[in-house]
Design a protein around this nucleic acid. Structure first.
Length: 872
RNA sequence: GGGCGCGUAGCUCAGCGGAAGAGCACCCGCCUUACAAGCGGGGGGUCGUUGGUUCGAACCCAACCGUGCCCACCA
């Protein structure tokens, strides 16, 4: 057998290029078949649990999910390797309004409305959709390589979670934290349901502010509004109590135009005298502020619009849509001479339905609410007192701003898809909340509330309902509180704050998770948001198919520091694909060169180069551990990328070629063992980021069954070696400088360059002359050696070269002159600093010492460069 | 209207008090026996502007100019 590192001969097992498609599916199926992702709640190992933020069953996973999942998978895979009992629990969210809308749209394509089907049949259709869409999502997760425990998959509407919903609803109800009330809520006239505050998105829209005169003569009062049509529902005009202009009118009545009704003028401190005319029309049934004013003054609430936004008051406007009614009302007022100021454009914030973008209508209606004050305070305290850590910490301010100013949460939705509100109404006005173990009341006249709960109500239970709550299951005991919640900062409020509220409430004050890791949004290579209309959307499956799951994950994780948005592009995923291939080839080469993991790692007789790479490896392990603990996955990627590509591939593999092809069998054996160790350690370190290629390589290299449960590398201080690092660092500088010279001089690689190396001893490189010569392609100086260039390489080494007359003296002289100027400048700067008593007096000793060293180095460079210039 | 953040190489970003960095892009030279999805070399930034603190500022402070996001019931 031959020892030469010829890949083709020695390793038919690895092809010349990494082909992810061939590897990924096979590996994933094996992992699942072997139960490697299954958690054991009876294990003695310390627990580490993540619940997957359940994707909505509205469609398929997008690149943002791929980021979210990649972060979690990286974190959990490392913990699994570290010996924790890991649980990553998968599942999906029924996503009430979003899913209902999707299915309704599909039905519309068939010319059917949900009302044609009826409630039961419609819900059945949604379940069909869920089966279809959910299956697609699960398939995508396997393609990404998610190491989730499939045996514990949950759905927010499955039986167990429904029981959890009933349980907590009943408990909140009994504690007086859920109530039913007639309030102004956000209403979507298209979805025909109430919305919570967070389901409303505000945008600055241009409206028209018109001023309308109410009343006549001395009693006339002018109000301004952007929503003229609502004057039909006015039941008062309000002014500030101290406003001298209107004091005399307070308590009187004016005639409301177009209606013939007379309405009172009331004084309310809410009115800003400086805005507009200082007088406000009051429409309690259609404006939240006006509702408050109405409550304070006992005003009637007059509803003048139905759930579709159509005018319901009798008269010329009856049956008009709200947006048709607006100009119609203005026109009618103008005809009566009531418009006192011309309409003027006015930009103001208008709410839109998050799901369909319809302008939200504040509407007085009877809804169920959660009294959030005590829950939100606890949710804030858990972060304030450090029980829950938020990464990045900057986002805690936003979190506090939210939980400390939370309005009561409207939880009833006039939808069919969701958890039905477990409240029954009796024939005599009885209201009964039915718990999970209660019998629903039967008999004449009893009906269940028709509404369903806000989808976030069940999502808020996710970290414990999925573990079996309200039962005291082994899973709940073992894995609650979960270790970390990973999600995008965009749903900090929607979801995280609510899980905190319900988790603390349901679990006796125990937080749902110890850490919240918030990642950013995936953007394109110019930092732009991805959007269908912009055409810059990336389909993760497309990338997985073309570049592999590992490359896709690496591309995403390479930007995934806490709170940071993640720009991606096809060029970058190509780079990541190249990286996977680089690892592949490095291992292929290692195997061909006899890399092995058998036997103890030798400690005696190691070469400087071996000691150097082992030392570097220990530093890398330390850095990566730190970065992982801080969830700085972008830094993890960066550290490992450079270690793998620069240290291992570009230098270590090259530096060890002479040994591996040489005659010293013992030295060769040692290096083979070190090479094996470095490669397999690198594969273990990269496995959380790039699970597939590392699995394929590690199992091939080690002959062991899987890297999934291999031990995570631990840094060994014994193996760090500063001297070896310095030595190799010097060696690299010499080699690089010679290469630079050759490139500058246009010396062809094949062209013979005879050289004499001086000063190696002093630089500690005496033993490495051979390596330097081979890497820099320098020949031994022969009898006809005639130095034509003298090269100082900065570590006290001088290289005299004979390039057989090919030296461009002018170019080299110019470069040296430039270098000399730089060295002079450097020396001057250092001297100036050292001559400054303020600096030497106040700066730390090590800084001063550093400057001294710099000065010495600069002076040495000056001397060397000068002599070189003379020699040229 | 409040709050938060960001402006560093052509692009995307790291560095956050002691000599300006990475990836990609670009330029030059190479099929050197793991890898051309590669190898070697190189150019490119007065770190948004103006002041201040400091022996020393990309880094701390202030103002300004850009820009992004979140929250918000002034008609």
């Amino acid at each position: 057998m031959t020892d030469t590192p010829r890949a083709a001969q020695a390793t038919p097992a690895l092809s010349a290029q990494y082909a992810p498609g061939e590897v990924e599916q096979r590996r994933y199926e094996q992992w699942v078949a072997d139960g490697l992702f299954k958690a054991d709640s009876s294990s003695d190992k310390p627990p580490f649990a993540i619940v997957l933020p359940p994707p909505n069953v509205t469609g398929s996973l997008h690149i943002g999910h791929a980021l979210d999942h990649s972060v979690q998978d990286a974190v959990i895979r490392r913990k699994r390797m570290q010996g924790y009992e890991t649980l990553w629990l998968p599942g999906m969210d029924h996503a009430g309004i979003a899913t209902q809308n999707v299915v309704e749209r599909r039905l519309a394509g068939e010319g059917v409305s949900r009302h044609d089907l009826g409630r039961e049949a419609f819900v059945e259709r949604v379940w069909q959709w869920k089966a279809e869409s959910g299956g697609k999502i699960l398939g995508q997760m396997t393609r990404l390589g998610d190491s989730v425990d499939w045996s514990r998959e949950r759905f927010t509407m499955d039986e167990g979670l429904s029981r959890a919903v009933l349980t907590i609803f009943k408990r909140l109800f009994d504690d007086g934290l859920i109530y039913r009330a007639e309030r102004i809520i956000n209403w979507c006239p298209r979805c025909l349901t109430a919305l919570s505050d967070i389901e409303v998105e505000h945008s600055d829209d241009e409206g028209e502010l018109v001023s309308i005169r109410y009343g006549d003569g001395d009693d006339a009062i002018v109000v301004a509004t952007t929503r003229a049509e609502t004057m039909l529902g006015d039941t008062a005009v309000a002014v500030h109590p101290d406003d001298e202009r209107y004091k005399h009118l307070i308590g009187t009545e004016v005639e409301l135009p177009l209606t013939g009704r007379r309405i009172p003028i009331v004084a309310d401190a809410h009115v800003d005298p400086a805005f507009g005319t200082g007088a406000v029309k009051v429409t309690p049934a259609h404006d939240p502020n006006d509702f408050e004013i109405g409550q304070r003054h006992g005003l009637p609430s007059l509803t003048m619009m139905d759930e579709h936004g159509v005018i319901t008051v009798h008269g010329p406007f009856l049956g008009l849509d709200r947006f048709e009614a607006r100009p119609a009302v203005v026109a009618a007022l103008r005809a009566e001479g009531r418009i006192v100021a011309e309409k003027r454009p006015y930009v103001h914030a208008v709410g839109h339905c998050q799901r369909c973008n319809t302008t939200v209508e504040p509407r007085l209606s009877l809804q169920w609410f959660v009294r959030t004050e005590p829950l939100a305070r606890a949710a804030g305290d858990a972060v304030r007192d450090g029980r829950v850590r938020v990464e990045p910490p900057e986002l805690t301010k936003r979190y506090f701003g939210w939980v400390d100013n939370m309005h009561d949460w409207c939880i009833s939705r006039q939808l069919w898809w969701g958890h039905r509100i477990p409240v029954w109404y009796g024939p005599n006005g009885e209201v009964v909340c039915v718990g999970p173990d209660d019998e629903a009341p039967t008999g004449e006249g009893w009906v269940q509330d028709a509404d369903v709960l806000d989808t976030w109500f069940s999502s808020a239970l996710w970290p414990f309902s999925t573990l079996g709550w309200p039962d005291e299951t082994p899973d709940l005991a073992k894995f609650y509180p979960t270790s970390v919640l990973v999600t995008g900062y965009d749903i900090l409020f929607f979801w995280v704050a609510r899980m905190m509220m319900f988790g603390l409430y349901a679990m006796g004050g125990r937080q749902p998770f110890d850490v919240v890791m918030l990642h950013g949004m995936v953007r394109d290579q110019y930092g732009k948001k991805m959007s269908k209309s912009f055409g810059n959307v990336v389909d993760p499956l497309d990338w997985i198919e073309r570049f592999g799951a590992d490359a896709t994950r690496f591309t995403l994780l390479r930007g995934a520091n806490p709170g940071a948005d993640v720009p991606v592009s096809e060029e970058w995923v190509q780079g990541a694909r190249n990286f996977a291939n680089k690892l592949w080839n490095a291992t292929r080469y290692g195997l061909a060169g006899g890399a092995t993991v058998e036997g103890e790692l030798p400690t005696e007789g190691l070469s400087t180069v071996d000691r150097w790479i082992l030392s570097r490896l220990q530093h890398v392990i330390g850095e990566v551990d730190q970065q992982f603990e801080a969830f700085e996955l972008a830094k993890v990627c960066d550290t490992l990328y450079h270690f793998a590509w620069d240290d291992v591939c570009d230098w270590y593999l090259e530096l060890t070629k002479p040994v591996l092809t040489g005659d010293d069998a013992e030295a060769k054996a040692r290096t083979r063992r070190v090479l094996g160790h470095v490669l397999e350690s690198l594969q273990r370190l990269l496995h959380p980021i790039m699970p597939f290629v590392t699995e394929e390589l590690w199992t091939t290299l080690t002959g062991r069954p899987t890297v999934v449960r291999a031990a995570w590398p631990v840094a060994d201080k014994e193996l760090t070696d500063d001297a070896a690092e310095r030595e190799v660092d010097n060696l690299q500088r010499v080699v690089t400088e010679v290469r630079r010279f050759r490139a500058d001089q246009g010396v062809k690689p094949a062209q013979r360059v005879v050289a004499r190396l001086e000063g190696l001893e002093a630089a500690g490189l005496a033993a490495h002359e051979g390596l330097i010569r081979s890497l820099a392609r320098l020949d031994q100086g022969g009898g006809d050696f005639a130095a034509t260039a003298k090269l100082a390489v900065g570590v006290g080494v001088t290289v005299e070269l004979d390039t057989r007359g090919a030296i461009d003296v002018a170019a080299e002289r110019a470069r040296l002159t430039k270098d000399r100027a730089a060295a002079e400048k450097e020396a001057d700067q250092c001297r100036a600093k050292l001559g400054n008593p303020a600096f030497t007096g106040k700066a730390p000793d090590q800084v001063v010492a550093k400057i001294r060293q710099r000065l010495e180095a600069a002076e040495a460079d000056l001397a060397r460069i000068s002599s070189q210039l003379e020699a040229l």
